[in-house]
């Protein structure tokens, strides 16, 4: 009985639907294209979407807490820019390359947290403002120059478990993949196994009740927005290492794409809902969709149209189902 209720719950969950869609899409792409279901391609997808995945996970945590952060792309950009400038001028190793963006991310996150908590204005407004401030100041100070010429050790990257596939190509768990998996693991543990993670869910579910129960809301706000900043800093590092340049406009502007991925994964803008698995699947769907379209030779111009369609269809189905459910609930026993 117990097993079956759990199974039923999973079968009814949005994650399951999303999984089915991804599986279906994967199957179609496997049949239609030669390259989709190859280790090389899947690795490519994983690597190139890892920084989006990292930011999505951070955003999910903010959404669960009942807030939203739009400024994370600016945070990531500021973090990677300062990191890149530093290691190019002063050298340093992986620790420096890691510590700088992470520290900056946490600091900018703390700014958001302090403003959201003290000004009592919805976080979407605050973070739109801070997005403009962070980004504007960065471009003003740096005049928008691109950064190349990373030190060799940074250009070469960092990898574990090099291995060769049957076809002789070499693969390795590169920096992006290692970091992405670590972020998944840490966030999953945080949300499901720690007291603070559960408090974040509770606060997102009912802020007033959390206040009455004596939750330390200030601490929770700081934790949530700093964690987002922390992950944005990491994402900045990963993205810089991936493309070997820091261009101020390469991440900013993709906020809503990440929001879309997280919401597709079942997180609610009203707070309190969202799972790690859902977010992973949401990012996966968008990644596979774009990859598939590329492999099919569809011009990249069409990608946005398809993503827009997916968002519209999925949110419409969810909303419509909820409407039907409400109608059923309204009935009484006669």
């Amino acid at each position: 009985m117990k097993v079956s209720t759990g199974t039923v719950r999973f079968l009814k969950s949005s994650e399951f639907y999303l999984f089915l869609v991804i599986a279906g899409l994967g199957a179609i792409l496997t049949v239609v294209t030669e390259d989709f279901f190859s280790l090389e391609n899947l690795f490519d997808v994983l690597v190139s979407y890892s920084f989006l995945g990292i930011m999505a996970v951070g955003l999910m945590v903010v959404l669960i807490s009942g807030g939203i952060d739009i400024s994370f792309t600016a945070t990531a950009t500021v973090a990677q820019y300062i990191m890149a400038s530093f290691i190019i001028q002063h050298g340093g190793g992986w620790w420096v390359a890691f510590l700088i963006p992470v520290t900056i991310g946490i600091m900018l996150g703390a700014v958001n947290a302090a403003l959201v908590y003290n000004l009592r204005v919805h976080s979407i407004i605050i973070t739109i403002a801070t997005l403009n401030v962070f980004y504007g100041v960065l471009i003003f100070v740096t005049r928008g120059k691109w950064i190349y010429n990373f030190p060799d050790w940074f250009a070469e990257g960092y990898s574990l478990f090099d291995f060769s596939a049957a076809d002789g190509t070499d693969y390795s768990f590169s920096l992006s993949i290692i970091v992405l998996l670590a972020v998944f693991a840490v966030t999953g543990f945080l949300l499901n196994r720690t007291s603070i993670g559960r408090q974040i869910y509770a606060m997102g579910g009912n802020m007033d009740a959390a206040k009455r129960m004596g939750f330390n809301l200030l601490k929770l706000h700081f934790f949530v927005y700093c964690y987002m900043g922390f992950l944005a800093g990491i994402a900045g590092l990963v993205q810089a290492q991936l493309v070997q340049t820091v261009a101020p406009n390469s991440i900013v502007g993709r906020e809503l794409e990440v929001v879309a991925a997280v919401v597709l994964g079942g997180a609610s803008l009203a707070g309190g809902a969202g799972t790690l698995l859902g977010t992973i699947l949401g990012v996966t769907l968008i990644a596979i969709m774009q990859n598939g379209l590329t492999l099919l030779g569809v011009s990249s111009y069409w990608h946005k149209i398809v993503i827009g369609m997916i968002i519209l269809i999925s949110v419409s189905i969810t909303a419509y189902n909820r409407k039907l459910e409400e109608r059923r609930h309204a009935e009484i026993d006669v």
Partner: peptide
């Protein structure tokens, strides 16, 4: 359809931008 405005217009925004 009862979709929340932020999600509905996020969808149409992406779609129309693409178009």
């Amino acid at each position: 359809l009862g979709v929340s405005p932020i999600l509905a217009t996020l969808g149409t925004m992406t779609l129309i931008q693409g178009a």
